[in-house]
Amino acid sequence: MNWTELITGLVMILIQLALFLLLAPLVTAWVRKVKAIMQNRQGPRMMQPYSDLWKLLRKEVIQPATASWIFTITPYVVFVTTLSVALIVPIFTTILPLGFIGDVIALVYILATARFFTALAGLDAGSPFGGLGSSREMSLASIIEPAMMLAIFTAAVTAGSTNLGTIAAQADVGLLLTPAHLFAFLGLFIVAMAETGRIPVDNPATHLELTMIHEAMILEYSGKYLALMEWASSMKLLLFLTLLANVFLPWGISNDLSLVSLGVGAVGYGLKIFALATVMAVIECSTAKLRLFRVPDLLAASFVLSLIALILFYLLGGESHAVL
C-alpha cells in the first residue's frame, strides 16, 4: 500500500470518528429543541448538551458502595463500542477504510455488547431501580432484535451484501423508495424509536419509576461516567438516524474521494439527519407513551412491516443479489 492511500484512509477514519463523536450531542439538542418548540417552550439552546458533557466531565465520580469493577468498566465499554460503529457505518461517504472489520450483523452484536454491560451495571449497585431498568431493557431488546434483524435482512438481500458501505453504495438510488424499502424503512424506524428509548417506548427526559427504562439502569452514574454514558446514548441516536438515512435514503452519499462529492455527501447527510430527527421529535410529541406491556404490540408491527418488506421484495421478482 502506498503512503498517500494510507494517509487518505487514516484521515477518512479520523474525520468520520470525529464527526460521529461531535455531531451526536447536536442531534440530541435538535430533537429536544423541536420538542420544545412543539410544546410551546423555548427549550435549551443548541449547545446545551456540549456544556452538560463538559461540566460532567470535570466532576468527580460518586460510586455506590456495593458496586464492583463491572460498574467501573461499563462506561468505557459502552462508550468505546458505541464509538467503534463509526468505523463500519457509512456517514457521508461509502468509503470505509476499516469497513472490513465488521458488517451489519456485527453492528447488532456491538450494540448488544453495550447493552449487556449497561444492564450488568444496572444490577451492580444493588438498587431496585437498576434491576428494574436492566430487566425491562433486556426484555424489550429481545423483541426489538428480531424486527431489527429482519429489516437489516431486507437491506442486505436487496444490496447483495451485509457490508454497510456496500449497502449504501448499491442501494437503489432512485428518488422514490421501492415498496420493499418503504416497509423495511418503517420497520427500522420503529426499531430506532425503541432502541434509542424514544417516547412511545421509553422517555429519555423522565426519571419516573413507572416509566423509565434506560435512565433507571444508569441512575447510579455520576460525573465523568455519566458523561460517557450520556454521550454514548447520543451517539446511538445518531447511529440509528444514520442507518435510516444511508441504508434507505442514500441520496447524495459520496462514493469517491473527490472534494465535490464529499461536500455534497456531507451536506446531504446533515439535511437527512436533521429531517429524520425532526420527524422523530414530532412523533414523540404527538404520541403518548405506551404501557410497558403494550410495547410488544408496537414491535410486532415493526416485525411484520419488515417481514412484508421481504415478501414484497421477492414479489418484485427480486432474487438474492449475492454472487455465489
Partner: peptide, 15 residues
C-alpha cells in the same frame, strides 16, 4: 414506482 410506492402506503395503513 410512484404507483408501487403509494400502493405500499395503502398496505401500511391496513397494517
Amino acid at each position: 414506482r410512484l404507483i408501487d410506492l403509494f400502493a405500499a402506503f395503502m398496505l401500511v395503513c391496513s397494517l
